[in-house]
Every structure is written in structure tokens, then in C-alpha cells.
Nucleic acid binder design. Structure first.
Lengths: 229, 229
DNA sequence: GGTTGGTTCAAGAACTCTGTTGAATGCTTG
DNA sequence: CAAGCATTCAACAGAGTTCTTGAACCAACC
């Protein structure tokens, strides 16, 4: 029960707000933030996640446990692997809200973003709604690891994992047109692909946002292996 | 610049995601979460905030500095006081997203909410859109400290600070109808007021959400002292 | 049933966070 | 310009976090 109106029940209030803080604490580590960013693409095993965030498997497992304790992820046994995924769309929305605040308010954020992503001012961006217009002429490249493509991708997009980009660019007909996307607004894969494409004389742009944003906005999604040739 | 596609620039990526984590860390403490909840109502001085969260002024000042460093609040000198406010609406949205995730995913959350707020299943809730329908017959009570009412309230609402509730209930005509609201979904003031009103034989309900949610949805807002008699 | 490989646990060192206390700072007002 | 008051700073003890290392667990497969 609540206390009287004037003298609020401090202990109960503290415990309730500690519960809010527990969720924030789960995201209060850069490596765990990276994990959430990857898991927003779909389910992954501990090993894959460890290599994504550049940490040992033991440490990654520990971080995943932390996320699990806070309720942000779910685990599932799959053969000899354990696969983790985000607990819900709400977690994805929280992650997006967190990025927005960081981008708007953290001192030195833009410098750090540029240090990682390079200067984006010279890269063209395509809004999701414009994509239909470009559809007839442009190819759509999903520049994420193949596992993430299989877990879900834009209908008609072809899987071009980061390491395959140079080769695929070489195979391209001269003066082709490509729209590339990857994990989200702070993912470097699509940027790099666009730069390589431009350098090779093609027309290339980056999709605004990434796959999770596309899906969150209720747009169509395909799953499984390659669906375009 | 980003590294090559296959070997991502670990350091730059770490630093970028550490920036996201820095925002989460600012909210990763129950007392700071309480501060954000109060500041979502409007500007407050350090002293007021200290008494709201039941902490010493020195400790509160330290927490506010932490929030300021992360860019979540802004400070302003006002006479001999320093007043803090949230840095932007984005911070409010982040706070809302955090509450949603906690409510959906933190183990034991419902128990903690009930421990603080009491059992809500017997309390009637009024959606913002329904309020217009009740308008003609029901009074609307703003059950927050007077300072928060002055900083912004529902047009036509009267200020009934928590400590004034028993007295105001006594003054009420028999079988009156009241809709009460306060800071948000996890604020106890309106619940308590509704319980006191019901016990006194009146008809009473709680507004869904609180003042920040009302304003966030673009509904009309009034400021300053009492505007209804 | 033993082996393999993926995952988790345990312990520890370095570091960070939290609340306390008391002093220092700095604005305002007479 | 001195007094008064609101706020911040500094230092500290206790607690929590992070990454490492090596061992333990445990499902799956021969």
C-alpha cells in the first residue's frame, strides 16, 4: 500500500525506481549496447556475438547474462548452441530512443560518429518511401553478415556481406545503380559499400536507417536465403 | 575514417557505443531516475529535487551533475537558486521507453509497482479522449506539488497538492465527480486522492498517464497560477 | 559411454559508483 | 562589502562493474 499523501513511502518508491534503473544499467556498457544493436537484427549465438563485439566468449556470455537478468533478451537452446534474441519490440524502441538522445545531447558525439563512420556529408541518403521509385533501376544491397540477411531482409534485396563487397562491385555492369543498407543509422557497412561503389564509377546511395527501422515501421520483410538473382 | 570492411575499427566503434552507454548510465540509478521523473514536470531547484528524492542536497547536486554531464538536463541560474530542467522532449521519450521496457520485462516489476502504488485493479481509469465527455460534470484535479502545477497543467484543472487533498475532499459537495492526475503512470498522488474521494462517497477516477504524457501527445496546456474556481 | 565443442561459472585485480561529511564557492541582498 | 544562503567540491569507505584466466558444465554426436 502507498503511505499517506504527504509522506510518501520512500522504500517502496526507491525499489520501484531501482527497477527502472536496472533496465538502464543493462544498457550502460558499450559492449552490451553493441550486443543489443546486433540482436536487433535477429537471433545470434554466443560465439557469433563475441566475435561481433570483439570480446572473449566468457565475457560476452557474462554480458548476455546481464541483459537476460534485466529481461532485455531471451535465450534458446538450438542444437549445441545457445541463441539470444531481443525480448520484444519495446527493447528495440528503447534502443532507438537511447541513440536519439545520445546523438542530440552527448558532448563530442558527432566527432565520435565521424571517427567511426567517416564523413557522411558527401553520401547520398534514400528515404524508405523513395526506394519504390528507384526500384526499377536500382539494385538493393543488404550489406550485413549473411546470418542477419537470412533472419530478415528487404524483399528483393540481395545479400552482399561486407567481405564480399569488392568482388560484387567488380562483377557489376558499368554505371550501375545501388542502394545499400545495413544495421541502422550507426552501422558502417553500407557507408563503406557506397564509397567503394562510387569509387568504381557506379551510382550509389545509403538507405536511411537500417533493417530494424524498416521493420519497425511496418514495412514488408522477407526471410531465408537469397530471393533475387 | 572507417577501417576496411572486414576488419572494423574496433576502437572507434567502441568509443561510439560508449557514448550510447553514457546516456544509459545516467539513468542507471534509481535516484537519478526519480529526478528525471520529477524534471519531466518542469524546472525545479536543487533543494526541491533533494527533498523529492529524499537525499541530501550534496548528493542530489552530484546526481544532477552526472545527468548534466550526459547532456540529459540543462541548468540555469535563477536568483540564488540553480534550476534544472530536462534537455529536450527526446529525453522524456527515452524515459517513457525505459518505463515501458521495465514494466514488460523486469522480473518482479508488478510486485514492486503494487507495493508502491497499491492495487489499482479497483480504480477507474479515464482515457485523455474521454475527459472531454466528463468535462461538464467532473472536476479535474492536478494532484502534484503547486510548483509543478504552475509550470504547466491541463486547462481547467485545479491545483490540489497532495497535502491539501483531505481538506479539499471535505469541502466538496456530496456525490461530486472528480478526475485526478499527477506525474505519470507510476506516480502515487492521484491514486491516493482517488481512494480518499471514493472513501468519502464521491465518484472519482484517475486520468490515464500524467501531465507529461498529456503534453507529449500535443494536447493543450495552461501555465501559471490557478485558472479555475 | 566417452569425447567434443559451445557455453557458463568462479575468483581476482583494477577501476568506477554511491552516499556521507565537512569545507569551499559564489550569488544576492542589505 | 559583509552576511547569508544555495550549491558545489573533495575525500573517503563500501559496494558494484569489467575483463581475464582456468575450470566446470552439459547437450550432442559418434
Amino acid at each position: 500500500m502507498a503511505g499517506t499523501l504527504a509522506t510518501v513511502d520512500r522504500t517502496a518508491k526507491s525499489e520501484l525506481f531501482d527497477a527502472f534503473a536496472a533496465v538502464a544499467r543493462a544498457l550502460a556498457n558499450g559492449r552490451r549496447a553493441e550486443l543489443v544493436d546486433v540482436l536487433a537484427q535477429g537471433e545470434r549465438s554466443v560465439q557469433e556475438l563475441a566475435s561481433e563485439i570483439g570480446q572473449s566468449v566468457a565475457n560476452t556470455s557474462q554480458h548476455l547474462r546481464y541483459l537476460d537478468d534485466a529481461g532485455l533478451v531471451r535465450r534458446r537452446r538450438d542444437g549445441s548452441h545457445v541463441r539470444y534474441r531481443l525480448a520484444s519490440d519495446e527493447v528495440e524502441r528503447l534502443w532507438a530512443a537511447l541513440r536519439d538522445v545520445a546523438a542530440g545531447h552527448v558532448a563530442g558525439f558527432d566527432e565520435r560518429a565521424t571517427a567511426y563512420l567517416g564523413d557522411r556529408s558527401d553520401l547520398e541518403e534514400v528515404a524508405p518511401d523513395e526506394l519504390a521509385v528507384r526500384g526499377p533501376t536500382a539494385q538493393v544491397w543488404d550489406v550485413r553478415p549473411a546470418a542477419e540477411y537470412r533472419a530478415g531482409h528487404l524483399p528483393g534485396a540481395m545479400s552482399v556481406p561486407p567481405e564480399a563487397v569488392p568482388e560484387r562491385v567488380r562483377e557489376l555492369a558499368p554505371a550501375s545503380e545501388v542502394v545499400a543498407y545495413c544495421r541502422g543509422p550507426y552501422c558502417a557497412f553500407a557507408d563503406e559499400a557506397v564509397r567503394v561503389l562510387l569509387a568504381a564509377g557506379h551510382r550509389a546511395a545509403r538507405l536511411e536507417g537500417g533493417f530494424p527501422e524498416w521493420r519497425r515501421d511496418g514495412r514488408p520483410v522477407a526471410t531465408g536465403a537469397e530471393d533475387a538473382a
